[in-house]
Design a protein around this nucleic acid. Structure first.
Length: 477
RNA sequence: CGGGAAAUAGCACAGCUUGGUAGUGCAUCUGGUUUGGGACCAGAGGGUCGCAGGUUCAAAUCCUGUUUUCCCGACCA
């Protein structure tokens, strides 16, 4: 009924994107707010998406020789302060414990905002020979950063993530690791999330506190804003020197290790929502969807309906699919709307008409398209449809990304383009003052120096000096 | 952290101006009829009004503080 619709409907994506996003987060039952600012409850359905991401990445990490470990949550203040740039980068957003039990602590403890320092302290203890290298660790955990403005999944005071930390014998090996992990993240976008990422290097201004080089995967949201979705860092020997991580090499000399770190977070859930979602709610790419297929019975009281649905569920589970059969006494219309809100990629409808003709209706979440399918051919049809849903979603997002990238040859052109959203590519002199000016004038930031470089000018449109690199700018979350 | 708005049942809101200890719709529960796009009828349960103080015979309502959320800036994954 109309009233029902009014209460359950979400804000239109193009009317108020921010409100739409919040509505989807809550109505798709991904999260709930807690009573502490910036800390959210990850509800089962939201957490299940994270678990899919974890499963995918954990497998890739292990395939590439990484081991999972767990570091403490608390960092002694003195430890965090060992690397100058690092502490300066994180100090403003640290939560600090000053009391333990009943007593004031002698040394304050920082709730980890990231674990570089803990890994470094540990590495220094366990490495002595080149034979000990490389060490490739990963940690799944949460970190705390006292953010001033928070939004579910996109920016929280606490968020879940993985952080990889590796140390290597040579610069080449560490750099290779840094780029290999970036490639794994990019592949994850394409294979799992159906999100195309632009990859490239961060400018000096935007790189990680303490890193020598930072690389990034950048995605484009439906509202035209960019989202940094993951980063990998090459540290060189900066941390190794600060923390004394040394080893004796084959030539007998004592050397510092070469180090990397890399991470993605639950922010990826925000990316999925904002890249794929629509006015009916969430739209999940099939491979990351906790439930890939939902079976909705029509007139389920009629003989044979429930039995046939159960049979279909079993057959689909047998080929490895995640399937839900909703035999609750809700009406079909209610179930359609509910599972669309939750973004389940494929719905199977089965009623008396279907039973009679030995067919089912497949309905694709991403397009709404309905397809008749013979029950005998169900397995292949479902697998193929899920595959094509993934491909359609990826290519739609890719088209949006590519169409959004505009070239600016003058600063005026840049300023008018940047307000329309998307990425703007522009020649850049390499000077941070130009980035700062752009930030001040337009609120846009440099997102990355893309790997795919081209040359369409000799000067930086902002300052007029010589320019050799193309940089992508955008307004970002 | 600055500027603005908000907080009353699971959700969305009304009540506040002019104090007299809550109301509507949806949701929930029970029974029945239904079922191909958020069903219908009948009945029932549920809140002390974000939190903490204050004023008052009396506070959802007035005052002070505080927390959280949303929007806009500055900061960041």
């Amino acid at each position: 009924m109309g009233i029902d619709t009014k209460n359950d409907a979400i804000t239109s994506r193009d009317v108020d994107f921010a409100q739409w996003y919040t509505d989807v987060c809550r109505k798709a039952e991904l999260m709930d707010y807690s009573s502490v600012k910036g800390f959210i409850v990850y509800r089962p359905y939201g957490f299940a998406i994270w678990e899919q991401i974890q499963n995918y990445l954990d497998h890739k990490f292990k395939q590439t020789g990484h081991e999972n470990v767990y570091m403490p949550m608390m960092i002694p203040e003195s430890l965090l302060q060992k690397e100058k740039e690092h502490v300066e980068g994180f100090a403003p957003e640290c939560a600090i414990v000053t009391i333990g039990g009943q007593n004031q602590l002698d040394e304050r403890l920082i709730v980890r905002p990231t674990s570089e320092t803990l890994f470094c302290e540990h590495f220094a203890k366990i490495v002595s020979s080149y034979r000990d290298l490389p060490i490739k660790y990963n940690q799944w955990c949460s970190v705390v950063r006292w953010e001033k403005t928070t939004r579910p999944f996109l920016r929280g005071s606490e968020f879940l993530w993985q952080e990889g930390h590796t140390i290597h014998r040579t610069k080449e090996e560490a750099k290779h690791e840094t780029l290999m992990m970036l490639e794994i993240y990019k592949d994850m976008g394409k294979d799992l999330l159906a999100i195309p990422f632009v990859t490239g290097q961060k400018t000096e201004k935007e790189k990680f506190a303490g890193a020598e080089e930072t690389y990034t995967i950048e995605a484009l949201m439906h509202d035209g804003k960019a989202l940094q979705s993951g980063t990998t860092h090459y540290f060189g020997d900066g941390f190794a020197k600060a923390f004394g991580i040394t080893f004796q090499d084959q030539d007998g000399k004592v050397k510092h290790v070469q180090q990397t770190s890399w991470g993605v977070s639950t922010r990826l859930i925000g990316a999925i929502i904002m890249v794929h979602g629509d006015d009916n709610g969430l739209v999940l790419p099939p491979r990351v969807a906790p439930i890939q297929v939902v079976i909705v019975p029509i007139q389920q009281a009629k003989p044979g309906i429930v039995a046939k649905c159960t049979e279909i569920k079993n057959r689909l589970e047998k080929i490895g699919l995640r399937v839900k059969f909703d035999d609750s006494d809700r009406t079909p219309g209610w179930k359609f709307a509910e599972y669309e809100m939750k973004g389940i990629p494929l719905r199977i409808e089965l009623g008396p008409r279907d039973l009679e003709s030995n067919k089912v209706v497949l309905c694709k979440r991403n397009t709404g398209e309905k397809i008749q399918c013979k029950i005998d051919e169900l397995e292949n049809a479902v697998l193929n449809t899920l595959t094509s849903i993934h491909e359609e979603m990826y290519h739609k997002a890719l088209d949006q990304l590519l169409n959004s990238i505009k070239e600016a040859n003058t600063y005026d052109e840049f300023k008018s383009l940047i307000d329309k959203g998307g990425y703007i590519k522009m020649m850049w002199c390499g000077d941070e003052t130009c980035e700062n000016k752009i930030k001040e004038d337009t609120n846009a930031t440099s997102r990355c120096i893309p790997f795919e470089q081209e040359h369409f000018g000799d000067t930086c449109p902002v300052c007029g000096k010589k320019a050799s690199k193309v940089v992508l700018f955008a307004k970002a979350y």
